[in-house]
Design a protein around this nucleic acid. Sequence first.
DNA 1: GCTTATTGTTTTAAGCTTAAAATAATTGCA
DNA 2: TGCAATTATTTTAAGCTTAAAACAATAAGC
Lengths: 169, 169
Amino acid sequence: MDDQVIPLDAETKAVEQPEDHREELRLWLRLLTCSTLIEGEVRRRLRERFDVTLPRFDLMAQLDKAPDGMMLSDLSKRMMVSNGNLTGLVDRLVVSGHVVRTVSPTDRRAMVISLTDEGRAEFRAMAGEHEHWIADLFGDLNAKDRTDLMRLLAKTKLSARRAIMGDDQ
Amino acid sequence: MDDQVIPLDAETKAVEQPEDHREELRLWLRLLTCSTLIEGEVRRRLRERFDVTLPRFDLMAQLDKAPDGMMLSDLSKRMMVSNGNLTGLVDRLVVSGHVVRTVSPTDRRAMVISLTDEGRAEFRAMAGEHEHWIADLFGDLNAKDRTDLMRLLAKTKLSARRAIMGDDQ
DNA sequence: GCTTATTGTTTTAAGCTTAAAATAATTGCA
DNA sequence: TGCAATTATTTTAAGCTTAAAACAATAAGC
């Protein structure tokens, strides 16, 4: 099978040679495929079943965990999207009656976004079904698979963060 | 620690009880976080380094593998995006001189999209750097990690497909 | 207090994305 | 042959997303 012998530098390490990173590339494409596949299906079901978009659902999920509401900029950090994006998203959710905007009593620049009672009730109903969809989508993974995958993704997350921010911060 | 005893049905299986799928939910959120984190960084670098968007890069990556071009609808399937989306994407890449549209000689409905020589050269340069970025982003995973993650993601992909399409097709 | 820097948000312009409807060409079949 | 169904693409309307610029209020340093 034409096994290639990789010459080693006698002193310390492998001889400099054009590195092949196709394996990492395939790993990335497979990760992206999984993510795209599942996300697409979740979007489709949210739309079909509740006539809601994934960004709206995600925003409400954050707010559901914060009984007293959240500042727009905190939402922005948590959701990893821009402030400008959230401005529009919140606009639409205010119109549909799911959330309300309040000026922060302690900082007149800041907006506090909160779920309305109707918004919270509607979100809880959606979240219940959503959890079952996810369980189904990952249904063929056994307990060990899930544990291993969690661990490897945690490691991937740290690796990516290191590459993005540098080792120091 | 208040260990909860789960009563078993004497006959066949565990007593019906509200199932908890929080673990799968956490798994999904972690997968999504990894994907979002890496994708965002790749977008940022493509923009900063080559002033190109990820969708354009992805489209050119598909075309680079097809020396004789590809039909728009095949591109659509491969890239998992809508036809309408591709129409606009191709428009912009035609304007920038990276790709050309040709009417298929065998089917007058179909458009064949191909890279121009300049488009191909530019893509190859970008792809070279891109591969290094990915290698860096996944850099803290060792060989076994990568193998295991590949396998688990393959299983996840099949599981999701099964949940989306049903076991039969 | 005054000034500068920072922080929080919105606006703008451009591009990405989709579903649904509209067009156009081909295929299948009676 | 002719017509119905299918396939390939584009158009449209709406929403998502971002970076950059603009604006407003607070915090920090002098």
